[in-house]
Simulated scan of single mutants.
Amino acid sequence: MRDIISPHISASIAPILVNIYCVSRVAGNTILEREMEAAGKKREKFRELASNRTDKALEAIERIGNLSNRQLYEWEAGEVRKIIKALRDEVAKVEARFEAPNIRRRDRFSL
Rank of each mutant, 00 (worst) to 15 (best):
M1G: 01
R2P: 08
D3I: 15
I4C: 09
I4W: 09
I4P: 01
I5E: 01
S6R: 06
P7N: 07
H8M: 14
H8G: 12
I9F: 10
I9G: 05
S10K: 07
S10Y: 02
A11T: 11
A14L: 08
P15C: 00
P15Y: 02
I16V: 13
I16G: 04
L17C: 01
V18N: 03
N19W: 05
N19S: 12
N19A: 15
N19L: 07
Y21A: 00
C22T: 08
S24T: 04
S24C: 05
V26G: 01
V26C: 01
V26T: 04
V26D: 01
V26R: 02
G28V: 00
G28F: 02
G28L: 03
G28K: 00
N29F: 10
N29G: 00
T30Y: 03
I31Y: 09
E33Q: 07
R34G: 01
E35H: 06
E35P: 01
M36Q: 07
M36I: 15
M36G: 02
A38M: 11
A38Y: 07
A39S: 14
G40E: 11
G40V: 10
K41E: 03
K41W: 11
R43I: 08
R43A: 15
E44N: 13
K45E: 03
K45P: 00
K45C: 06
F46S: 03
R47L: 04
R47I: 00
R47E: 02
E48P: 00
E48Q: 12
E48F: 10
A50S: 08
S51W: 15
S51G: 11
S51E: 15
S51H: 04
R53Y: 14
T54R: 14
T54S: 12
T54Q: 14
T54L: 15
T54W: 15
D55M: 12
D55G: 10
D55T: 14
L58G: 13
E59T: 15
A60T: 06
I61F: 11
I61D: 09
E62I: 08
E62C: 14
E62D: 11
R63S: 09
I64H: 02
I64E: 10
I64S: 05
G65D: 01
N66C: 07
R70A: 07
Q71P: 03
Q71Y: 12
Y73R: 01
E74S: 12
E74F: 02
E74G: 14
W75Y: 03
E76C: 08
E76D: 10
A77R: 11
A77V: 12
V80P: 02
R81S: 12
K82C: 05
K82H: 04
I83N: 00
I84G: 00
I84H: 06
A86G: 04
L87K: 07
L87T: 05
R88P: 05
D89Y: 06
D89V: 05
V91E: 10
V94S: 04
E95N: 13
E95L: 11
A96D: 03
A96M: 03
R97Q: 13
F98L: 05
E99Q: 10
E99F: 00
A100N: 15
I103E: 08
I103R: 02
R104A: 09
R104H: 07
R104V: 11
R105Q: 10
R105A: 05
R106A: 11
D107K: 08
D107Y: 14
R108P: 06
R108V: 01
R108H: 09
R108Y: 05
F109T: 09
S110I: 11
S110H: 13
S110P: 03
L111F: 07
